[in-house]
Simulated scan of single mutants.
Amino acid sequence: MKLEHYARLSAEEKDALDALTQVRTRRVRSRDDIIREGDAPSVINVVLEGWACRYKTLEDGRRQIIAYLLPGDVCDFSAPVLREMDHSVGAITTVTLAEIAVESVGHLFATYPRLTQALCWDALTSVSIQREWTVNVGQRTAFERLGHLLCELFVRQRLLGLTRGGVCDLPLTQAEIADTIGLSVVHVNRTLQDLRSAGLISLGGRELTIHRLEALQRAVLFNPSYLHLGHEGRHLDAPPPNP
């Protein structure tokens, strides 16, 4: 579903993806690491169920979460070229992963060029999200940082068909949110109260409810263009122009 946002996949391409992600799977418990900084990657991990995150840890234990990984996301797309991981990937919830051999991905790329282009679109979108997170931490206010993150997580889940009206999962602790947007836990708690008081969101039972999405987007300067939701990949299906 995620890759079809970038290109319409044929039945053969979908079957190839299904076969690739069903060869070997494993489950990782909540808060355990999937792969650690310094490890030599031997497979490519794809999230099938659950939430994970990329993060970096300083020598004194301080942590920065640098990405959230949702179902359909690749944990370590750079595994074929890295000798060792330069960051860690940890499970937020219990996670089910597909472990894909590097050589299998190479075969996929060689056999299905349209699928390869869709995966490249996906990788470029991940880089775009990283740029937006840098702006978030560097320039936005606390209210904007937190609201922007919530908008992004909601929109990304909606793309996967995982939202229920204005409701989506949010299995994050306030400490994890703090490690994401560069605030203290106390500041995150106070900012959540501000968002609630404004009538924009509700939180409870590991669920986020956004009452007025457009109003929240305006309030926190959220422009979803960096998520590339405009089906740019659909041009891959267009017939060549007439000579």
Rank of each mutant, 00 (worst) to 15 (best):
I34Q: 04
F154Y: 15
S78I: 05
G166P: 05
V89L: 02
E132P: 00
R131T: 09
R29T: 05
L48K: 07
D18N: 12
V167K: 10
V155C: 04
A40E: 15
F222D: 05
W133H: 08
R234G: 10
A98Q: 13
G182T: 01
Q193I: 02
E232R: 13
G166D: 13
C151D: 06
T209W: 11
V74P: 03
L195T: 06
R36D: 01
A19N: 15
Y6F: 15
S10D: 09
G147W: 07
G50R: 07
R218V: 06
G230Y: 13
L20R: 06
P41D: 04
S104T: 10
D39L: 05
R54G: 15
I44H: 07
G205F: 11
F154P: 02
H148S: 05
N45M: 11
E132M: 12
E4V: 00
Q130F: 13
V74M: 02
N242A: 12
D32F: 00
E144V: 06
F222I: 09
V137M: 09
R145N: 10
L208G: 03
H5K: 13
T111F: 09
L108G: 12
F109Y: 15
R62P: 05
A110I: 00
Q64S: 11
I35E: 04
C75L: 09
Q139L: 01
G161H: 14
R206M: 07
G106Q: 13
V89G: 01
R196E: 14
G199V: 04
N242H: 10
V186Q: 11
L162M: 11
T116V: 01
R145L: 05
I129E: 08
F222P: 04
N45R: 13
Y6L: 09
T173G: 08
E144K: 01
G147Q: 05
Q117K: 09
Y68H: 12
R24H: 14
V186W: 13
V95Y: 03
Q130K: 11
I210V: 14
V89H: 01
I35F: 01
V186D: 15
Q193Y: 11
P243L: 12
P240W: 06
N45P: 10
Y226I: 09
D169V: 00
D39Q: 08
G205W: 12
L236N: 11
L124G: 03
F143E: 12
V74L: 01
L216S: 03
R63K: 15
L208V: 01
G230W: 15
D32N: 08
C151K: 06
L229Y: 02
C75K: 06
D179C: 04
N136E: 09
L48V: 03
I35K: 05
L153Q: 14
E214C: 03
G230N: 15
G147D: 03
Y68M: 02
N223R: 12
G166K: 08
G38L: 02
R196I: 10
T134K: 13
V155M: 04
L119I: 12
I210M: 10
G199R: 05
R24V: 14
E49L: 05
R212K: 12
A91N: 02
A178R: 02
T134D: 12
T163A: 04
Q117F: 12
D76C: 07
A19V: 01
G205H: 13
N189W: 08
L146D: 07
V167F: 01
F109A: 04
T191W: 06
E59Q: 11
R114K: 14
A219F: 08
S88T: 14
D60G: 07
T116P: 02
R26Y: 13
V28D: 02
L108C: 10
